[in-house]
Write a protein that binds this DNA or RNA. Sequence first.
DNA 1: CCAAAAGTGTTGGTTCTACACCCATGG
DNA 2: CCATGGGTGTAGAACCAACACTTTTGG
Lengths: 227, 227
Amino acid sequence: MRDRSAAPVARAGRSPASASLDLIVCCSDGRHLAALVVVPLRGAATLPWALLEDGAGHEAAAQRLAREHLGRAPAWLAPLGVAGEGRRHPSGAPLSLTWLALVPQGTPAPEGHAWVPVHAMPALPARQQPMVAAAVAALRDRMDLVPIAFRLLPPEFTLTELQQSYELLLGRRLHKASFRRALQAAYLVEPTDAWRSEGRGRPAQLFRYAPRRRRGHRRPVRFELLG
Amino acid sequence: MRDRSAAPVARAGRSPASASLDLIVCCSDGRHLAALVVVPLRGAATLPWALLEDGAGHEAAAQRLAREHLGRAPAWLAPLGVAGEGRRHPSGAPLSLTWLALVPQGTPAPEGHAWVPVHAMPALPARQQPMVAAAVAALRDRMDLVPIAFRLLPPEFTLTELQQSYELLLGRRLHKASFRRALQAAYLVEPTDAWRSEGRGRPAQLFRYAPRRRRGHRRPVRFELLG
DNA sequence: CCAAAAGTGTTGGTTCTACACCCATGG
DNA sequence: CCATGGGTGTAGAACCAACACTTTTGG
């Protein structure tokens, strides 16, 4: 089905690679954030990576890389960073591009891959070591500008799932009634006509992310986040 | 003193450039954000740029580029983006790296350069055209995580200047007493023993940015910024 | 009945912003 | 004097988080 050897988009040795591309794919397992690692038959685990001969189309390359390692397109894909300073890739690629992808909760890890909670990462190649933490920090930083919490869920989700997604990113528990009231006021979701019966209790209604125009909202001055 | 021809860090033609590097340098003129443009004797204006043979050390290269165009180190320097998709540099460099620098209000534009308000940019090369808007958006987005407003000021500044800096970034007027109360509560600045007499009225005390440890601050759920 | 989902009312706290006012100081 | 800087008190609005409660609906 897939080549387990982390199929580089460009093979080393043809022409000097201009950049290495590493991908952090994050997913929620319901309780924690997890990252996708490649677990080869022998040898150490790595994050998905590739070499680029030509940096042009590196976004497309990131997309391709994500597809190859997931079997599907990610729900979200964004550049995480560029590094030229740190340890470079063994191939000698002078630039290291990092991309961050999100997939919905429940996405299975393909053969040769595993979801590993981000707080329990195995030893990774030196270049990749700091990337997971950077990814988590970036997710937390951007979660109120970008619908991160929604991309960790399938297109249709229950409000309880959404709340858990937020709790996971914020790292603390939220109050159910308050969460829903605030969500209501923000016009971020719309109900579908589908319901999901979870076993016992009343079935949960499914919602989808459908932000509506928000009226003029002026941002307050926020000093507290600086330090 | 300086070479006006936008002294590329690596000259085209020696070996294929691996990346182009563009720099947006922003500064406040007290009323608006302005960006540094290179104004050649003949031809169109450009943003400072360079070609990199080797992406390694591109941060150092950005530093160097900023120094060359400013005559001094910027107060802040951060990567803004990587693009491989759009129009590429005429040299054929496959990757386009963009860095964003800030310098304090009052920094003079060297010979052959000019500060241009970001809302009135001249025609730039196609590749550079969207960069200024992206830079402004990035500044607004990150201003409450990173001390952007402070980097637009000299190390010592008056509270009125700081408030103007915030007003410029937020795009609206703030209330003086409230601004200062909030600033006080955030332990972000410390007074120096210097005062500056501005003409009439009581002299203003100078402050410096000196954030102190902020106690455990839990972030509220923010839905309002999504949409 | 019970469990879970969905939603209402309300309350207490904090934050944001504004208004009005104070004093200090240099020209 | 007056303009400006620095600061206090306070008030209203908005927001946040929690508690308690009701209603709905499947098992």
